[in-house]
Simulated scan of single mutants.
Amino acid sequence: MRPTVLDTTGARLFEQAEELRAAGPAVRVSLPGGLTAWSVSRGELVRRLLVHPDVSKDARKSWPGYRPGAVPWLTVWVDLVSMFTSDGPDHHRLRSLVGQAFTPRRINALRPAVERITSELLDAMAGLPQGQEADLRALFAYPLPTRVICDLFGVPQEQRPAMLRVIDRVLDTTVTPEEAERIGYELFAAMDRLITAKRERPGDDLTSVLLAVHGEDGDRLGEQELVSTLILLIGAGSETTVSLIGHAAQALLAHPAQLAAVLADPTRWDDVIEETLRLHSPVMHLPLRYATADIDLEGETVRAGDLLILAFGAHGRDPEVHERPGEFDIDRADKQHLAFGHGVHYCLGAPLARLEAKVALPALFARFPGLRAAPGGESGPTQPSFITTDRLSRPVLLA
C-alpha cells in the first residue's frame, strides 16, 4: 500500500489525524523530501512512544544513512545539536546547562514585563475605531510572545524583524528545497549575529547567560550547541504562545457562556488555558523520532531505523482519551494533553507560555468587554504547516 501523503498545508491537520487514527495504530505517511515515516495519532500510543526506550531523538546515532543537510526542510529540526535532538547523557548534559538559564525564578520574574507589554499592545488597539475589524493575531497574539522572548534573550531591536521573519518561515512545510535551504542559512546567520552582539556587549539576558553558563566540571555549550539552543528556545518560545493566545481568545468568543463564567470567576483562567491546549494544541507534529529496535504497536511492527512522526495534537482529540473530544468545555474534569510533550523532552518553556496566556487573556477581555469575532473569522487561513496549528489571521470586531 502506498503511503498517505501528510497534509503539508495545515488545512486538514485534525481531520487527517482522525483518518490516520482510524486507519491503524501506525500508518505509513509520505513527508516532503521523499521521506516515509510511521505516523502515530492514537493518544495513548503517542504518550507511550514519547518515553519508549527504543525511540530516539538523535538522527546522528539512530537514523541509518543520515546525512546532515540532505533534506533541507529538516535542517532546523534534525541537524541541530541541542537537547531537542539528543538522547541519554547528551540530552541530560545539554538540558542541565540550558536549565540554568531557564529557571522558575527567571520565568516568574518576567510577569511585570509581560504585563507591561500586554498593556502597551492593548493601548494601541484601543486607539482604533470602535467596531472596526482588526486582526487579533497581528495586533496582540503575535507581538506579545515575540516581544517577550526577544527581550528575554536580549535580541537587539534592529535584528528582530529579520530574525522573526525567518523563524516564521521555518514552520512552512510547503516550501521548495531551495527555499528551505535558504531559510536554514538565514536562521543560522540570525543567531550568529545575536551571539556576536552579546559577546561584544553582554547584558542581563538569556543569550549572555548561555554564553557564560558552565557545568560543575567546567563544561560549556559548544558553538554549534549554542546556536542550536538559541534556535530551539527563541523559536519554540514564541510560536507556541502565539497560537495558544489566539486559539483561546477565539474559543471564548465562540462560547459566550464560558467566557461569562471565567469573567465571573478569574480563578478559572487556568481551565481556559488547559482546555485550549487540549483542543487546540499549538503543535501537531515535531519532526522526527527514530526506532532503535523493532517495536510492536498493537500488531503493527515498526522496524529498527524507521522514522516516526508523532501527532502531539491528536492526543487531546482522541475519543479513547476524552469524552466529547471535539467540544471546547472548560468544565470538563480531564483536560490532559501533550501540547508541551511528555517525559524527558517536556518543554522547558511551558511555564512561560502559561504565564503569558494567563496575563494576556484576562487583560484582553477586560479592555474590550464587547469584543466579538468578525464574520467568517473562525475560518481564517491556516499556517501552511503540519507542525503548528496556528492561523495566519484572527479577525475580530473591537468594542
Rank of each mutant, 00 (worst) to 15 (best):
T4F: 15
T4P: 03
V5H: 11
A11F: 00
R12E: 15
Q16D: 10
P25S: 14
P25M: 00
P32A: 07
G33R: 09
G33A: 09
L35A: 08
L35W: 06
T36C: 13
W38Y: 11
S41W: 01
S41M: 06
G43N: 12
G43F: 13
E44W: 11
R48T: 14
L49C: 09
H52S: 10
D54G: 04
S56E: 07
K57I: 00
A59V: 10
P64N: 10
P64D: 10
Y66P: 05
P68E: 13
G69V: 08
G69A: 08
P72Y: 12
W73C: 00
D79P: 05
V81C: 12
T85Q: 14
D87W: 01
R93P: 04
V98F: 08
G99P: 05
P104K: 09
R105F: 04
I107T: 15
N108Y: 00
L110F: 13
V114K: 08
E120R: 12
A126P: 02
A126I: 01
E133N: 04
A134K: 04
Y142K: 09
L152E: 06
G154A: 01
P156T: 05
E158K: 11
P161H: 07
A162M: 04
L164I: 12
V166H: 10
I167N: 10
D172N: 15
D172H: 14
D172I: 12
I183T: 14
A189L: 14
A189Y: 11
A189M: 10
L194D: 04
I195N: 10
A197V: 04
P202Q: 05
G203W: 09
D204M: 03
S208C: 02
S208K: 01
V209I: 09
A212E: 14
V213F: 05
E216R: 13
D217V: 02
G222P: 06
E223A: 15
Q224N: 15
V227L: 12
S228C: 12
L230T: 09
I231Y: 01
L232D: 14
L233K: 02
I234N: 06
A236H: 00
S238T: 14
E239L: 09
T240H: 02
T241C: 06
V242Y: 00
S243F: 00
L244N: 06
I245F: 03
G246S: 07
A249F: 01
L252P: 03
L252C: 05
L253F: 07
A254T: 06
P256W: 04
R268A: 04
D271C: 10
I273H: 08
E274Y: 08
R278A: 03
P282M: 10
V283F: 06
M284W: 04
M284V: 02
H285N: 15
P287M: 10
R289Q: 15
A291S: 11
A293T: 13
D294H: 04
D294I: 01
D294P: 04
D294R: 00
E298Y: 03
E298G: 12
E300G: 03
L307V: 11
D318N: 08
E320Y: 05
P325S: 11
P325Y: 13
E327Q: 13
D329S: 13
K335E: 02
H337W: 05
V344M: 14
A357W: 03
K358M: 03
V359S: 03
L361G: 07
A363Y: 04
A363T: 05
A366R: 15
F368V: 08
P369W: 08
P381R: 06
T382C: 13
Q383K: 07
P384W: 03
F386N: 09
I387T: 12
D390K: 05
D390N: 15
L392S: 12
S393L: 07
P395F: 01
